[in-house]
Amino acid sequence: MLNFRKVKPFQGWITVALLLCATTSVLADASEPLIDPEADRQALRAYYLKRFPGVDIQDYINGIYALDAASREQWQALEEFPPYEFDLEAGEALFNTPFANGQTYAACFPNGGVSIRQHYPYWNAAEGRVKTLELEINECREKNGEQPYPWKKGPLAQISAYMAWTSRGQVFDIKVPADDAGALAAYAAGKRFFYAKRGQLNLSCANCHLEGSNIFIRADLPGPALGQTTHFPVYRSKWGELGTLHRRYEGCHRDTRSDPLPPQSDAFRNLEYFQTYMSNGLPVNGPGARK
């Protein structure tokens, strides 16, 4: 009888996947006009609206907790005393402490670094690459004669958490300039990464987070692909500390039994670009807390 489970969403997913695959493979020959991020975003929203009709699109910022009532309750209890509070304080202090040369983080960013999270990552045309917030925090340090921080946790995650905090409620507004072939190619690379099969287990991110969202894989429930990045960095109970998005990418990537790519590699920044574009229209709610 369990056989009837999820037959419909699965078929729906195939349709979405075929559409997406069709676009991706065409754009592999660099026919850039066919890359249409906005159409992809609308297709993803439509997919989730259809699959989980009772769930408000805005609620997808809460990941699996938007879909599964049982885990939502545990999470709400967790959020009563947010486990990332100390990190926020530490992040604020770090952000406001001038470097040895007297300069500040604020000077490196637009609007003094406040309320800007919703614009990251972005395509930097001059450098020809996607820039993430974490990348620019470390660049700011190096420019001012400081050592860069490690990418996955610790002070870098704390500063990033504080900057997200000052942006809470701002709506993600990632741009993929339609007249910039480099930006379109970066977006397309991120999208291909998300849908491509990888590793010894032959799994794609989409296998678990699109088709497989809210279906048990052993005792774990993969969350939805929509809104997956809005709350990063995240305090994860399993880690017992705060971690960045690329730390999470590394773990999930390893779940496919392939060699993880390094944080802030081109592939991961492009993936973040694609995923965050999918979250356009949703508010910043970082830092978050997850199981």
């Binding site: 369990l2 279906i215 048990f216 052993r218």
Partner: peptide, 20 residues
Amino acid sequence: IACHAISDPQAQLAGNQGPP
């Protein structure tokens, strides 16, 4: 067992990504 239930009493906490 990560994806398939089976009626072996030793198979607890099976996932359901695949059919039983």
